[in-house]
């Protein structure tokens, strides 16, 4: 199956806000996204044999936040998620990248052209205010390059997604991605690269990820805004509890997803 973006002109893309020269203000360029997704298609279908379940939980329009687990030496899980949502819903996902990404040559430009946005409060607020679909990995950079013994364990958990969901009345869709945390085992991290813009360099066990079967499970949306007024986003206690609720929902979804997986290899 090919990406739906391949067959749609840029002007017709839902959620694309052209600033007049074919780019949005964050640098998204639909033709580049289209090419990237076309390249990622075989990786998704043939190498990782990705399947997804519960796509009906992803809103077809309006602001929404996909909250997923993170793993692997490089963020392959993000690519699979963007591709799957595009194919199934036609929506552009705006992955939220860590703050060190803009300092990286080539990567920063490619991320921007394919829709990624640096995870500052102002940037994410702007996306939600104009009704875009964003994807957040609350484990942050710590989720990347987890040791194999910590796979599918969310040890760090930032709370910004809950605050934004309450303030901008956006549902949170937990997304369990199974496979990514095992496909590319990491031996360790080399630190001391902060002056070059990155917190660490992952040391993968293999030069390429293993061809494990991947699965994406979309959970039922959590509508924090149905229970909490926008002002509740200013209360750290409320936000922390809301974030813990999202984490619990994702943990349960991840647990069920791993149990229902047919097999890693076949």
């Amino acid at each position: 199956m090919s990406s739906s973006l391949i067959h749609r002109p840029a002007v017709a893309l839902r959620g694309f806000h052209d600033e007049g020269h074919g780019f949005d203000m964050f640098g998204l360029h639909p033709p580049t996204l289209r090419r990237s997704l076309a390249l990622g298609g075989p990786l998704c279908d043939r190498y990782f044999r990705t399947r997804s379940y519960g796509i009906e939980h992803v809103p077809r329009d309006g602001a929404a936040i996909l909250v997923a687990n993170h793993g692997g030496a490089l963020p392959v899980d993000g690519t699979l998620l963007v591709l799957d949502v595009d194919r199934k819903t036609g929506r552009i996902v705006r992955p939220i990248a860590d703050r060190f990404v803009p300092a990286l040559p080539l990567v920063s430009t490619w991320f921007a052209r394919t829709g990624a946005v640096v995870g500052t409060h102002a940037n994410v607020s702007r996306l939600l205010a104009r009704g875009e679909l964003i994807a957040i990995w609350p484990e942050g950079a710590a989720g990347i390059a987890k040791p194999a013994r910590d796979r599918y364990q969310m040890k760090t958990w930032q709370v910004g997604h809950a605050e934004l969901a309450i303030r901008y009345r956006a549902p949170i869709v937990p997304v369990a991605i199974v496979g990514a945390e095992e496909a590319w085992p990491v031996l360790g991290r080399i630190r001391g690269f902060r002056r070059f813009g990155v917190p660490f360099l992952p040391v993968p066990f293999l030069p390429v990820p293993l061809p494990l079967r991947h699965a994406i499970y979309y959970g039922a949306p959590i509508a924090l805004h149905d229970e909490l007024p926008p002002d509740a986003a200013d209360d750290p206690g409320v936000v922390a509890r809301a974030a813990a609720r999202v984490r619990l929902a994702l943990s349960e979804l991840l647990h069920d997803a791993r149990n229902s997986r047919a097999g890693r290899w076949l």
């Binding site: 203000m25 964050f26 640098g27 703050r99 060190f100 640096v118 500052t120 102002a122 702007r126 813009g197």
Partner: peptide
Amino acid sequence: RSDEPNLLD
């Protein structure tokens, strides 16, 4: 700065 928002208010 690279870790500041793309949009400067």
